[in-house]
Amino acid sequence: MAEVKLLGLWGSPFSRRVEMALKLKGIEYEYFEEDKKNKSPLLLKYNPVHKKVPVLVHKGKPIAESLVILEYIDDTWGDIGPPILPKTPYERAMARFWPKFIDEMCIPTLRRASWSEGDEKEKAKNEAATLLKILDVEVKGKKFFGGETLGLVDIAAGFIACWFGVMEEIVGTQILNKDEFPNLCDWIEVFNNDNFVKQNLPPRDRLVGKYEAHYQAVKQARAA
């Protein structure tokens, strides 16, 4: 029986964060692919509150919420592999701040900018540009958000580097461009072309198919 288990979804950016962290640390784990429409008894047992992935199970004890899991991984296996969080208190505080900014403000706004229509879409696009500009300034002059090595903020921002680009392609709009966000676009190029990252992102063609199906379903629902 594996000491570490992960309940996830192949196309979830939150689930992929945890897989990336485990592999960065070199932690062996057993993976369980979940079905959003038919949640397993294991998922309902280990995350009865939110009933969502990812859930990390370590020695029979579950930990939910991707950012919480990432910190748990770094705390538990701190002496193995590269650190996910920096060591000094101030740098750790900043490394915690930006993922929350991404999850609570950026991702919901980027999704609205992709899937909504009309005035709501235009408002969300303007809001998204404002938020992305903040990140553009933050990553200026850096290879990764934390400096020279991949860390917590980069792993959390993977949605912007990979998933959001696919969403823009599907809906035929572009918010994130080199002219307005040169530093963020440079970071995306570095992130997506990093050998370790490339091995741990979902297949792009499969992700395109997933979001294309979602977009068509959204349009059909609006037309009904």
Rank of each mutant, 00 (worst) to 15 (best):
Val55Arg: 02
Ser66Ala: 09
Leu22Ser: 00
Ser116Ala: 15
Leu132Lys: 01
Tyr72Pro: 05
Asn38Phe: 09
Tyr215Trp: 15
His58Trp: 01
Gly118Thr: 11
Phe159Gln: 07
Ala223Glu: 13
Ala95Met: 08
Leu110Ala: 09
Arg204Lys: 14
Tyr90Thr: 11
Leu22His: 00
Val190Ile: 11
Ala129Tyr: 07
Gln199Trp: 06
Glu3Gln: 15
Ile73Tyr: 04
Ala224Thr: 12
Lys100Thr: 15
Glu138Cys: 05
Ala221Trp: 08
Trp77Leu: 10
Met20Cys: 05
Ala2Gln: 13
Pro82Tyr: 00
Glu189Asn: 15
Leu56Val: 01
Gln220Glu: 13
Lys125Arg: 14
Lys125Ala: 15
Phe196Leu: 13
Asp136Cys: 10
Gly172Ala: 03
Leu22Cys: 02
Glu71Ser: 12
Ala95Glu: 03
Asn183Gln: 06
Pro62Gly: 02
Ala156Phe: 07
Glu91Val: 05
Ile155Tyr: 02
Ser114Phe: 01
Glu3Ala: 14
Arg16Ala: 07
Ile73Glu: 07
Ala113Ser: 13
Arg92Trp: 04
Val139His: 00
Val218Thr: 10
Glu30Ile: 08
Cys162Thr: 14
Pro48Arg: 10
Leu176Asp: 01
Lys23Asp: 08
Lys23Phe: 03
Ala156Asn: 07
Leu176Phe: 13
Val49His: 09
Leu70Cys: 07
Gly151Cys: 10
Glu33Gly: 09
